[in-house]
Amino acid sequence: MTISFAHRHVLEDHIIGFEMKPNAHHLSVSRRPTIVTVLAHAEAEEDVQLALDLLEDVSIRSCGPCEWLAVSQSSSPEALLRLLRAIPGSSAFDQSDGRVLMQISGPDVRRILAKCVGIDLHADVFAVGASGNMLIAHVAGNLARSGPDSFEIIVPRSYAGTVFEELKEMGREFALTAAFG
């Protein structure tokens, strides 16, 4: 007997009702992003970092020494894994089903995030392209700056509901809307 599995996003129950037009402040949840953890072997950190920077269509998020998250919206986990496993001195593992990717944007996005992130998000300190692991609404996740007024959040799947609800609450004063994107 073959069982076919239907893919269902973990935030499906949180984003219900009729579709609203996105406001200036918008939280968009990626339906099926590809997220892969990359680890560098001992003494191979710099080489792996250089190789990762050369990859196209892949966004690299730093998680700490010798550890990165590779995020892609276009390629499949298999294709990305093949690409990353070709890098000598590295190990790569698929996390796509275990993580949730959200994009939050808007002119006052920093004021929304200031309520649930403990670090300085000023552009001089956390520039576009910067990323790091940190507590986001009391959940250990990864925050990356994708633009002057937009950030990307990666949290473990089981905590995504809490973080999503918290972010919506924080964004209420700016009429934050949320949808799959």
């Binding site: 700490g64 020494p65 403990g118 670090i119 300085d120 300190v125 790091g132 692991n133 940190m134 507590l135």
Partner: peptide, 11 residues
């Protein structure tokens, strides 16, 4: 040394 200035709650 890896992440920069962080609040003590993260530790």
């Amino acid at each position: 040394p890896h992440c920069g200035v962080r609040p003590k709650e993260e530790f």
